[in-house]
Design a protein around this nucleic acid. Structure first.
Length: 266
DNA sequence: GCCCGGATTTTGATTTATAT
DNA sequence: ATATAAATCAAAATCCGGGC
């Protein structure tokens, strides 16, 4: 009796899982295909849109990061705005560098992502781990400081821009930032680049402390994994003929707690 | 403040076997 | 032909510390 095979048929069997804060990665043994094909060096194309692949990476990073994003800063341009991604990124780089250098901010972990407004203007959201001061006056100082840094970064003397260029807001819950990213990443509308805009570059990025550290491998078979997920009530368990995907979203909380695993040190 | 450059991250292209 | 998921590769973009 010939068994049905699919894309995963040439990948190895499930060896274990890595349980992140929110998601679970399935680890398989073996290689997906033999590496004896002649290696060509593909020429990279231009970035045209925010792809689903990129969205998934962003989601994974945000949802599993150990950084708590309590604050969101939104940077906007005035009526006149750059038509090149390089210019936008230069502004962003300046801004982030200045923010990081501020002694009173201490450590500054951030995750930014790019959007385009209807008018075609680029628009950057920055999630970060800063907290707003309780004191009203201090808080205003902070708002002003952020505004000034952004204004300086875009090298503008436009007073209107000073006021309208930034928005600094506290996110309701600890997971508010994560949810915001999920919303951004899962928007069905296409994230295309406006026609006149050049060299978009990356759509999102983060500081080095944001990406989650790889958790230890927890050895298990596919049968065991399916059992745990079923018992745990994970809703998206595929039927027996469909492979377990390499990333199981929102599955972490449906698995048994750490102590019940046989943790293997790396 | 600004610039340089090494380290690291994000990205598109390519690859795999099989079903449609 | 085309779609599929994911691993891999190298290019390009970004990060970040150090020098000025």
């Amino acid at each position: 009796m010939s068994e049905k095979k699919n894309w995963w048929g040439f990948a190895g069997p499930v060896v274990g899982v890595r349980v992140y804060r929110n998601d679970v990665r399935v680890v398989r043994s073996g290689r997906p295909f033999a590496g004896d094909v002649e290696k060509v060096s593909p020429i990279r194309g231009m970035v045209h849109e925010l792809t689903w692949k990129s969205r998934r990476r962003l989601m994974f990073t945000a949802l599993n990061s150990n950084v708590d994003f309590g604050l969101m800063i939104t940077l906007t341009y005035p009526r006149v705005f750059p038509q090149s991604g390089k210019e936008v990124k230069a502004n962003l780089r300046d801004f982030l560098r200045h923010m990081r250098k501020r002694a009173f901010y201490g450590q500054f972990e951030y995750l930014w992502f790019l959007e385009f407004q209807k008018r075609g203007a680029p628009h950057i959201h920055i999630l970060c781990d800063l907290s707003l001061p309780c004191d009203v006056r201090e808080r205003r100082e902070m708002y002003a400081c952020v505004s000034m840094l952004w204004a300086a970064s875009v090298a503008t003397t436009n007073v209107d821009h000073l006021k309208a260029g930034t928005r600094t807001e506290r996110l309701r819950s600890q997971d508010g930032g994560r949810r915001y990213v999920a919303k951004y990443a899962s928007k069905t509308e296409q994230k295309k680049v406006p026609v006149n805009f050049q060299d978009v570059g990356r759509w999102w990025g983060c500081s080095r402390g944001v990406p989650p550290i790889e958790p230890p491998l927890v050895h298990c078979s596919e049968v065991e994994l399916r059992h745990w997920l079923k018992v745990g009530g994970w809703e998206y368990l595929p039927d027996k003929h469909t492979p377990m995907y390499s990333v199981l979203y929102n599955a972490a909380k449906h698995l048994p707690s750490d102590q019940e695993y046989d943790i293997i040190e790396l």
